[in-house]
């Protein structure tokens, strides 16, 4: 049971559509505690990524993810540009040369991506950032895999943990990014970066759910 190159492309495209549908919502979340451009920025970036899909035809998964990363860097604009850009670039490095991914390959890719985000943004767990959603998701993915569950089940567990992490950002006081300027007033709002991170892993769980276990 593996994720093939075209499945990866399908996931990226699905995520681009999710972002487009939720553009206003992400922007609303960001307006509450940030500078109100997260939805617009992410949508601009992923529409640019979508336009690159035809170039993916002769590329391996690593190259696809790196292209996604570079595209985001030059089109997103806000902090999510370098952050998601680094996520995809690092995930691309971890999957270089591969045409399909096993569950362990995906764990390695996600690990590399999340490490990249932490390195770039210097955020810790509890700072009310995307890390609060991604780290639990990575943890759940690993636990599910080591308990012997297959890929779709593990992805589902990962996305569920991601959602829990996202929801857990609501009471937190931001310590990184634009929201940290608000101090205590940032509490009571869900972090937009954690929200778009959850959408990313939810999209993976959904678009890869049909794969034979």
């Amino acid at each position: 049971m593996t994720v093939r190159r075209d499945d990866v492309i399908a996931w990226i495209q699905a995520y681009a559509d999710v972002i487009a549908e939720n553009k206003a919502r992400l922007t609303q979340l960001d307006s509450d505690i940030g500078d109100g451009d997260h939805g617009t920025n992410m949508d601009r970036g992923f529409q640019a990524v979508k336009a690159k899909v035809p170039e993916f035809a002769d590329k391996d998964i690593g190259a696809v993810l790196k292209t996604v990363g570079m595209t985001l860097v030059s089109t997103v604009g806000g902090a999510s540009g370098p952050l998601y850009g680094t996520f995809f670039l690092q995930a691309g490095s971890a999957t270089a040369g591969k045409m399909e991914l096993s569950l362990n390959d995906w764990i390695a890719a996600l690990q590399a991506g999340v490490d990249g985000i932490i390195m770039r943004g210097k955020a810790n767990l509890g700072d009310k950032t995307m890390v609060d959603a991604l780290l639990p998701a990575l943890q759940a993915l690993k636990e599910s895999a080591s308990s012997g569950a297959g890929l779709p089940a593990s992805l589902k567990a990962s996305a569920a943990a991601c959602e829990q992490g996202m929801l857990a950002t609501v009471p937190l006081v931001a310590r990184k990014g634009r929201a940290s300027y608000l101090g205590e007033r940032s509490a009571g709002h869900q972090d937009p970066g954690a929200t778009s991170s959850h959408m990313l892993l939810q999209a993976a769980a959904e678009s890869w759910s049909m794969l034979a276990d």
């Binding site: 451009d37 617009t40 920025n41 601009r44 570079m70 860097v73 030059s74 089109t75 997103v76 604009g77 806000g78 540009g81 370098p82 850009g85």
Partner: peptide, 9 residues
Amino acid sequence: QPLGTDAGL
């Protein structure tokens, strides 16, 4: 020309 920064630039 949206506001933002581009690491490549």
